[in-house]
Structure formats: C-alpha cells, structure tokens
Design a protein around this nucleic acid. Structure first.
Lengths: 345, 345
DNA sequence: GTAAGCGGTTCATTCCACTGG
DNA sequence: TCCAGTGGAATGAACCGCTTA
C-alpha cells in the first residue's frame, strides 16, 4: 500500500527507500537500457519495487524541462466538433498508450504559443495552411523545441519535422469527371464559411470544383450550392433544394456530414438514391453517423491508422531525424449512393 | 522582428535585452501586481517591449515546477466521442481564453497518473463514480498537487476540491411518472454496455428506471429494451422495434443520440410522433445533431456555462479554498416529441 | 539585485572486483 | 605474489528556466 506521507512522492523518496543514489534511481526508472551503466539486476529490482510501493509518478514538468520532452502527444485539431478529429484521436490514444504516452487534444487555436512552451513528445498541427504565418511558425517550433512536429500541409517541405500532404483537390477533379460521364449537371454542395479562409468560393475544395467544371466547359459558379453550416441546417436546405425547381441529379458534397444530411433529405423527400440522385462525399463518413446505407466517398485508405503511426513514431523516436514527407492519396470508395460498383478512379 | 538566435528565448534573454535583472523581468511579466515592488512604469514598459520583440513565451514547465501550477485547464473526458464533452469543451475554452489559459482534453482514461505529474491549473474529472478507487484517487490528487480539482460525482463530499453532483436519477423517476400518466406501458431504450460498469442493468440510469417502474407496480425488467451501441445500430434496432409486434408507445431514452436515432426510425417507419409515440431523452440533445424538430428532454439548465464557470474559477483562484458542493438540478424541457407544452416537472 | 531551490537527467568521476603478465 | 589495466556499477554535481525570500 502506498505510504501517504504528506505530499508528492519524488524520485529522491524512491532512491532513499531503495537505498541507492538519486542518479541510480533515475537511471533505472527512465534511463534507456542501452546506456552505459544500466545497473545490476538486483538494483533494478529494488528500485522498481520501491517506486511501486510508494506509488511514484515522475513529475512531467521536471522531466520535460531537463529533456525537452515528456509532455505526451498533443493534437492541435482546431475544432473538436469534427468526427475526423475524433476518430484520429481514438487511434492515436490507442497507439500512444502502448508506449505509456498520454494523448492530449488542444482545444483552442493557439498551438504556436502552447507548443513553444510545452515540450510535448510529438504534436500534430492541422491548420498550418489556413492560418497566416502558419509555415513560419511550424519552422520556428521545430527549430526551437525538441517536440516532434507533424504538419498537415499541402504546401510545406519537411525540414526537421514531418509533413503530411493530403489534398482532396485531385479527388474532386476525378469525382467531377466520374459523375459528369453520366450527367449533364454536376453540382457542389458546400457550407457557408462566412469570411473564414476567404469565404466558401476561395476554399481549395471549391476552387478544385470550379477548375474541374471549367475543364468540361461547364459554368462552375452556377453549380455551387451554398447552404448554412450544420447538420440540421443542411438537412433543411437540402429538403428545400430537392423539392424546388432546381432539382439536382449529381452532387459532390464538400464534407461528410453534408452528405449524411443530404441523403436524409432525399429519403425524406422521396427522391430515390442513386437512381434519381447520386451523392459523393469528399472525405470519409464515420460509420457511426450513417443512418442509412454507406455513402460513396473519396478518401484516404486507412488514414487514421497511418497518421497515428506517424505521430506516435515521432513521439517515441528520440533521434534527430531529418523529417519526411508523407503523401496520402485519395481513392474512391463506392457505397450505395452512386451507381458505381468498382473503385476505379 | 523576433531575433532567431538559435533556440528558445528565455527570461534571461529578455532581462538582458531590457537591461534589468532576471528577478525584475520575472516580476513584471508574471508577478502579481499586488506584490511589493511592482517596478516603475518605465521599467515595465522596457521589459514588456523586450519580451514582445524577442517573441518570448514563458516555459510552462519551469513555471509549473516552481509554482505547482501553470498547466492550463485539463478536462479528463475519457472520450471525445460524446457531444456533451464537446459542448463543454467549447465553453471552457472560451472562458479560459479570457484568462490566457489553454484548455486541453485528456483523451485516455489515465487521469490519475496524468494529473499526479502535471500541475494543471484546474482539472475536471468526470468518471470518478465509474472507476474503482475513483474517490480515493481524487482525494489523493487534491492533497498532493496544487491542481484545482473538480470531481463530477454523486457520491463524494468536497474536501479541498469541488464536487459537482448532477444525477439524472430523480429526473428519470419524474419522466416515468409523466409518461405513465398517459400510457400503460413506459419503456426504456438503453445501449448495450457489455461488461462495462457492470452491464446495462447495473447502470444507475437503468436502476432508476426499474425503481420507478416498481413504484408503479410495473414489471420494469420487461420494459427495458436493450440495443447495440451507436447511432446506426440504434436506428436499425429502432426500426425493427417499431415494425414488430411489441410496438412501444412511450419511450425514455438512456441518452441523447438514442433519442435522435429513434426519432429518425419513427419518421422512417411512418409512426407519428408524438401522437403514436412519445419520446423523452435523458440528457440534452445537441442542436447540431437534431435533424427534425427538437426532442423533449430532461437536462440541466445552462449546464455548460455553469460548469465552465466553476472550472475556470478554480483555475484562476490561487487561494486554498475549502471546496464546495454544486448540485445541479434536472428539469424538463419540452420539445416536439411529447404532448406536453409546459415545463412543469 | 543575489541566490536558493523546484524534480528530474546525465556527464564525468570514483569505486570496486577481477583479469593476466 | 604484486600491480597495472579494465570495464561495469554507482555516485556527485551541474543544469534546465523560472519564482520568490
């Protein structure tokens, strides 16, 4: 049973209880076995026993201050309100736990300030491309902290940090092409982003759509259907759309939840999918939120597993790796909302 | 422009640049203004300017180690996969930002180990009652760290930490009563919890339902309808239920997402709500996930605002307050899934 | 302004038992 | 038998950046 002395149990307490020096205790409990003097088997046992007995938990801050690491894995997701982040977090948590690292999600947007003073083991930054100064800040972080940075960006090159490049731009082109082969009018359902990132029309996804339309000689701007954000709003707007005069027949959805809402609206309006309306989502739709059959989508195979592995690898690896570029390719995953049956591009 | 010397900017750098001593710089940048020598206005300006110029960010770990605080606000939610936590986090983030505190969500279940070595400013622990040793660990945390603990528990008394007591038990009784007045059979829709927390039937919510049924002389066990977890699964099971021989007429839903799924299933099955089926949710349903009209529910008025205030208060207040008990009362919020029009219990 | 830590990590050093010439 | 040489085990002490007497 842990002695409840009167406060925190420190390494010094453990060392005293085990009858060894502070340095030795530290070596046993945290030093890499590969080091010179790993300690005798006997000593190790004693120290470990004492630590367990006292319920010793290392002070992360002391540890982090000395080594520049130890803060665990930090995920700067920007918003929690996104199933993508939720799924990623679950996977990272599982992987990290195997290495005794805790996983933290930063809930605000100040990743730069936070990470500068935090010494995490590894950190994922997703909003690099969407924030002024993003790339600069990532570089600065990588050069002045020991934190392993993983930048989600389509524009950066790795320099001492990893870069994950995963852009749906080409996928959108292919989606357009795919649907255009069967329909005269292919439309984009997009959320109203207000003034964020320059507005909906300036967003890379919309731009990719417009570009694809242009290649086919179609009037892209007229094919973009902007609705308010949120599931409920999208559902309502979708209902109106499907019952109105401008009935769509082939729709690319900007994001997963919109596809879910549109599918539901179609169900409700009595529009048969995919016979009368084909729907393709950009980005995968979490199984948990799909009420009806699976939605056809473009996405990255095994994103979460792959991304989590990259992150946790960075956290575990103490070496100064140069940093690598991971390019994620988007593929088509047919569901029940399109007439395709195979995954050919 | 920030000098990019070659590493981290420390307080010493700032002091040197400003031409003052380390102590002075520390006083100006972090010391409470109330202290003895706050420094002359002139000095303050110089130091602040130097800090800004260099892009100084205090090292949280050093700060935390010295003071026992500084880790920001930590929310030990266990999982992000719950809209309740997401909504709370958003509110806490807003409140905390006003005090320059960052908000972190701990994604794994090891809150005890994490907090023991972390010196957060404040931490919310939600799973106290559902984990062996929970209360003990909370006490130990409060006594051996400076972190302000807020324990979400219906069983504990505050002892140097705050306790938020918010149990739906009585609300479930009232819901039963409310529906029973109009129906012979009131049922509970619950997720299959497997062996967690002792199984669905052992969960406090289920127990409260059974108790309520017993009071009315109803066979409670027969009225519990257990379905697999997840929106989609619940939707499918709900469909089957509504089309089967055991058609329900009044259902209390264990949790919000189940109510959403059931409402959807009813819509799909052509069962009119609330005319043929009344639905009450235990716990509020996030507006964003409601496709149809608002669902009637029992919940706590302004939970998120109130809870966030409690948490951030604890984080900001450096005094050793004794800790207080906050009791949250559950009320009825009528929506369109019941025939009630007023909120009377 | 000076200086003493907070709790760990880690380099340089001492200590020791044992080898072989 | 004695002693320089050797390498593993354990320790001393500096130090990370900041707060505060």
């Amino acid at each position: 049973m842990p002695r409840e002395s009167r406060g925190t149990v420190t390494l010094a307490d453990v060392a005293r209880a085990a009858g060894v020096s502070l340095a030795t205790a530290s070596f046993v409990l945290s030093g890499r076995g590969g080091s010179r003097s790993a300690g005798s088997a006997e000593t190790k046992k004693k120290v470990r026993a004492a630590a367990a007995e006292l319920g010793y938990v290392p002070n992360r801050h002391a540890q982090a201050m000395r080594t520049g690491r130890g803060g665990g894995v930090v995920l700067a997701l920007g918003t929690l309100d996104d199933p993508w982040g939720v799924q990623l977090t679950a996977q990272v948590r599982d992987d990290a736990l195997a290495h005794d690292l805790s996983t933290l999600v930063l809930a605000d947007e100040r990743w730069y300030e936070y990470l500068l003073g935090a010494s995490a083991d590894a950190a994922l930054v997703t909003s690099v491309d969407f924030v002024a100064d993003g790339p600069d800040r990532v570089r600065r972080l990588a050069s002045s902290t020991h934190t392993g940075i993983i930048a989600f960006s389509a524009q950066m090159e790795p320099e001492g940090f990893d870069v994950v490049s995963s852009t749906p731009v080409r996928a959108i082109g292919r989606a357009y092409h795919r649907l255009r082969a069967r329909h005269d009018r292919v439309q984009l359902l997009a959320p109203d982003l207000g003034r964020r990132v320059g507005g909906t029309l300036a967003h890379p996804r919309t731009r990719a759509f417009l570009e694809a339309a242009r290649e086919h000689g179609d009037p892209g701007e007229q094919r973009v259907h902007i609705v308010p954000e949120g599931s409920h709003e999208t559902y309502l707007a979708g209902l109106e759309w499907l019952r109105g005069p401008d009935l769509p027949e082939a729709v690319i959805c900007f994001t997963g939840y919109q596809a879910v809402a549109l599918q539901l609206a179609a169900e409700r309006a009595g529009v048969r999918v995919p016979e009368e309306l084909e729907i393709v989502s950009i980005g995968d739709v979490p199984a948990k939120s799909e009420f009806f059959g699976p939605i056809s989508y473009y996405g990255v195979d095994d994103v979460f597993v792959r991304l989590a592995r990259i992150i946790v690898d960075r956290a575990v690896d103490r070496e100064d790796r140069p940093g690598s570029l991971h390019t994620f390719d988007w593929e088509f995953f047919p569901g029940t909302t399109t007439r395709d049956t195979d995954g050919a591009s």
